[in-house]
Design a protein around this nucleic acid. Structure first.
Lengths: 152, 152
DNA sequence: AATCTAATGCTACAATGTTGCATCAAAAGC
DNA sequence: GCTTTTGATGCAACATTGTAGCATTAGATT
């Protein structure tokens, strides 16, 4: 085990991957750990930066495929949230139906763990697989910094 | 007035544009009419096809800018709904906070006029400008056609 | 009709995501 | 420990969606 990693985190990531019948690769372990460490969903780009920071070579395609696999396996989930790019977050058991807040000031996506994204009653015939509730506005940090400008 | 258009629709589009201080151009009129006629939000691409069908020359950029202007003026609004591309719909008075349904089978976005996309109580400091509630699954048509396959 | 300038249309570009294929390396077998 | 198998990677090339700059066109006004 590399001495510069948290043993528990690395183990849980490795076990998670193996439990789904996938190969335990540097990329997948690092992606899962990055998502687990982050308090908010990460974009492909942000995850890539994390990998670079960890000295893990990769390219865009590998990362996309690793993320695709994680989503496919139900380990992670995609959020359409902010702008054009997807964001990813780890699916914690039973916890994957919370709403998200997109700050139009700083671009950040915040998980609103307390706010459920539940599907209301729908017209007959509609089968809902998942609900996405995204609130747009100014987050607590940006709201404090100033009402109109970028800085207070 | 061109004889192949609905006079009322054309007038309302023209008036709408003029009321916002913009120039009444073929593109804008056609885009507004397309959105008004459609029961569901349209993608940039679908709107472009409508313009082509109406024999109105245009290019991608013009259409993007026309749509940007409509959104800017509050005449239309963007929906992040389905995949990567934005969708657009006309803003009807007071009616612009309904939820949307994204059918993962046919890719269609359906307006759920009866389902409000209201923001629930948030942590202190969060200012919500708008709420987007998108439900993903199978729409009534696709659900009827078959449970797993594309066709019943 | 002449004028003014918003809007268009072109080219070129940026950002995000996908496909095909040769190579590499993780897991399994020996 | 070495070889085999094949899933995962990395590269190049491409597809889609959206923007920026700028010359030209055409809507509104005089």
């Amino acid at each position: 085990m590399p001495p510069h990693e948290h043993p528990a985190a690395a183990d849980s990531a490795r076990e998670l991957i193996a439990a789904h019948g996938g190969r335990v690769t540097r990329t997948r372990v690092a992606v899962i750990e990055a998502l687990q460490r982050s308090a908010h969903p990460l974009s492909h780009d942000e995850i890539g930066a994390t990998l670079d920071g960890a000295g893990i070579g990769h390219d865009r395609v590998t990362l996309y495929r690793a993320l695709d696999w994680l989503v496919e396996q139900g380990i992670a989930q995609r959020i359409a949230g902010g702008e054009r790019a997807w964001r990813f977050e780890i699916r914690r058991d039973g916890d994957h139906r919370h709403a998200h807040f997109h700050c139009e000031r700083c671009g950040q996506i915040v998980c609103l763990e307390d706010v459920p994204a539940a599907a209301p009653t729908l017209p007959a015939g509609f089968a809902v697989a998942r609900a996405e509730l995204v609130l747009h506005g100014a987050c607590a940090d940006c709201g404090r910094a100033g009402v109109e400008g970028k800085e207070g």
